[in-house]
Simulated assay, not measured.
Amino acid sequence: MPLPVLTINGLAMSFGASEVLKNVSFSVAPGETMGLFGKSGSGKTTIGRCIVWLEKPTGGEILVHGMDILSMRKKEFRKLRPKIQMIFQHPETSLDPRMKAFENLIEPLKLHSGLKKDALLKRGEELAKLTGLRPEHLARYPGQLSGGEIQRIVLARIMALSPDFIVADEPTSMLDVSVQAQILHLMQKLQRETGVSYLLISHDLEVLRKICHRIAYLENGTITSIENINRGIRI
């Protein structure tokens, strides 16, 4: 069996005297979508933020390809960081409103790829095509785009870094139902083509059951059960 992309062991998190997470444990296989379901305030987003180092847990392990990121120095984690990405509930916060969509899309490539201008533009066009963006979208500023178009730009930016794992925190909750379905289908398409793994965080169980291989149920700060949806990923 392949090594999990992500393994969480005994994760704990407290804010002052308030214990938000306690003994949270689960793993995510290569090419798997793991759902994380819980009510508002259950700690779902906190788990996601701990995985990408936006929050520092008070206990436990977070292993990426078997390496405990919590024991890493910042310099070590920075090398790994492009492989672990996060889509936020409000994706527009990830984009620079002063830059056009295409400039936002290729910014990660400028920072991390070392590609020269022609290769950079070609790769940007490939990513735009991969995520279903048209030239008219790419010429606009974020404020001129719809929620679905912004989410496609964010996905293209993330895929520019060839991630192994993406935390998707309520990625479609701000979209109407038809656009929501388009973005979820796009995420599945990207997974089929690249093998990327997802942790899909949502309070919408119907959405999770449509797209996930397994669903972890979070209640009172701990995982109470994991449901196997049986979509062909071997765990």
Results as ranks from 00 to 15, higher is better:
residue 5 V to P: 02
residue 5 V to D: 00
residue 9 N to Q: 15
residue 12 A to T: 11
residue 12 A to L: 01
residue 15 F to I: 12
residue 17 A to Y: 12
residue 18 S to H: 13
residue 19 E to I: 11
residue 21 L to P: 00
residue 21 L to I: 00
residue 22 K to P: 01
residue 24 V to A: 06
residue 24 V to P: 00
residue 24 V to G: 03
residue 25 S to Y: 03
residue 29 A to M: 14
residue 29 A to W: 04
residue 30 P to G: 02
residue 31 G to Q: 00
residue 31 G to E: 00
residue 34 M to G: 06
residue 37 F to T: 02
residue 40 S to L: 04
residue 43 G to Q: 01
residue 43 G to I: 04
residue 47 I to A: 04
residue 48 G to A: 06
residue 50 C to I: 01
residue 51 I to F: 05
residue 51 I to K: 02
residue 52 V to L: 09
residue 53 W to D: 15
residue 54 L to Y: 08
residue 56 K to W: 14
residue 57 P to E: 09
residue 60 G to R: 10
residue 65 H to E: 15
residue 65 H to C: 14
residue 66 G to M: 04
residue 66 G to K: 09
residue 68 D to Q: 04
residue 68 D to I: 04
residue 68 D to S: 08
residue 69 I to R: 10
residue 70 L to S: 03
residue 70 L to D: 02
residue 71 S to M: 13
residue 74 K to E: 15
residue 75 K to V: 14
residue 76 E to Q: 13
residue 77 F to K: 11
residue 81 R to T: 11
residue 84 I to V: 15
residue 90 H to N: 15
residue 95 L to V: 00
residue 103 E to A: 15
residue 104 N to Y: 03
residue 108 P to V: 08
residue 111 L to A: 15
residue 112 H to T: 07
residue 112 H to P: 06
residue 113 S to E: 05
residue 113 S to T: 03
residue 114 G to P: 10
residue 114 G to N: 03
residue 115 L to S: 09
residue 117 K to T: 14
residue 117 K to Y: 13
residue 119 A to L: 14
residue 122 K to Q: 14
residue 122 K to N: 12
residue 123 R to P: 01
residue 125 E to F: 11
residue 125 E to C: 11
residue 127 L to V: 01
residue 131 T to E: 03
residue 137 H to S: 07
residue 138 L to T: 04
residue 142 P to H: 09
residue 142 P to A: 08
residue 143 G to D: 02
residue 143 G to Q: 01
residue 146 S to I: 10
residue 147 G to V: 01
residue 150 I to G: 00
residue 151 Q to F: 08
residue 151 Q to S: 04
residue 153 I to K: 00
residue 155 L to G: 01
residue 157 R to P: 10
residue 157 R to W: 09
residue 159 M to D: 02
residue 159 M to Q: 05
residue 163 P to T: 09
residue 166 I to V: 13
residue 167 V to C: 07
residue 171 P to I: 02
residue 172 T to Q: 03
residue 176 D to K: 09
residue 177 V to S: 10
residue 177 V to K: 12
residue 179 V to W: 07
residue 181 A to R: 12
residue 183 I to S: 00
residue 185 H to A: 13
residue 186 L to W: 02
residue 186 L to G: 01
residue 186 L to S: 01
residue 186 L to N: 01
residue 191 Q to T: 00
residue 193 E to W: 03
residue 194 T to W: 07
residue 194 T to H: 07
residue 197 S to F: 07
residue 197 S to K: 06
residue 198 Y to F: 13
residue 198 Y to M: 03
residue 198 Y to I: 09
residue 201 I to D: 04
residue 201 I to N: 02
residue 202 S to H: 03
residue 203 H to P: 01
residue 203 H to R: 05
residue 204 D to V: 10
residue 205 L to Y: 11
residue 207 V to Q: 08
residue 208 L to F: 11
residue 208 L to W: 10
residue 209 R to Y: 14
residue 209 R to C: 10
residue 210 K to W: 13
residue 212 C to Q: 06
residue 214 R to K: 14
residue 215 I to F: 12
residue 217 Y to L: 13
residue 221 G to P: 09
residue 221 G to F: 05
residue 222 T to I: 12
residue 223 I to T: 11
residue 225 S to Y: 11
residue 227 E to M: 12
residue 235 I to V: 15
